[in-house]
Design a protein around this nucleic acid. Structure first.
Lengths: 139, 139
DNA sequence: CCTTGCCTTGAAGTTAACTTCAAGGTTTAT
DNA sequence: ATAAACCTTGAAGTTAACTTCAAGGCAAGG
């Protein structure tokens, strides 16, 4: 599959795909006799993984590190190191999900007390500090 | 409270706070006789809200829009408009949380099938397409 | 009264993650 | 055989969100 088709598959431009290869968030893609990139299933899996993790907020820098781990040869426990990175990223995602739930809880709180707060404010009553004991999510 | 103290309260530099006021993600902060900013509880609540929503990935641009809504006077249903923005942002957060859960499910899948996939790859068996029917989260 | 540590504004600089540009090679269709 | 539509590389440009710089004013201690 050529670079245009690969881009269309994941909603990326050809420029972005070349950029991803150049900085190393995906491994080098093999070329055909004309020097054109020929994306394999394995290359496309890499692109999918990268777009997915990017959409979850992981930085290009951390994806470069992960990709470099796959390129190494003859180190002893390469698989273990990669799995550990995957576990770490999963744990960071868990933290991020928890944080987003807390932010959601704050928005819910602001919505529930909106009229109440506006009324107090218009009556000149003291405003309460939102940042001390902020609302947290349940579950 | 002066700008340095306000920054320390939320882990922001004084430069960032001035930047936030300048671009309008928080309302103008009143000055004392020397021209220094004097942060009120209400100002600090704004800073807290902005840092919280920024940490959840909302753009400066969308926060400027929200802040401008609070500044308007004598339009009819200003409170309703603000509440609608809060509801929209909460709904977008819900979508984002759901998406992060799916990404988490993908990482879990990759971890579970890691050894399996490596073995197949080393045996020269065809690689399966990760992006068709990707794993989704439960609940 | 002078140093130290605050504060002010406006403008220019930085970083991440692309995006666009320039110059040119290949392949396919008319 | 020539135009349209692909592809290549390397370098320069863009945008968001700060950050740093320059030039100077206020306030408290010695």
């Amino acid at each position: 599959m050529n670079i245009k088709q690969a881009g269309e598959l994941f909603g990326l431009t050809t420029e972005t795909l070349r950029y991803y290869e150049r900085v190393g968030v995906i491994p080098q893609v093999a070329r055909n006799k004309s020097g054109y990139r020929e994306f394999t299933i394995s290359d496309l899996n890499w692109v999918y993984l990268v777009t997915t993790l990017r959409s979850a907020g992981l930085s290009i820098e951390s994806l470069i590190e992960f990709c470099q781990l796959s390129q190494l040869r003859d180190g002893q426990d390469i698989g273990g190191a990669q799995k550990q990175v995957l576990r770490d990223e999963r744990d960071e995602l868990d933290d991020k999900i928890d944080h987003l739930k807390d932010v959601r809880a704050l928005l819910d709180y602001k919505l529930e007390h909106y009229d109440d707060h506006v009324a107090k404010f218009n009556a000149g009553e003291p405003v309460e500090k939102l940042w001390e004991n902020p609302p947290r999510h349940q579950d």
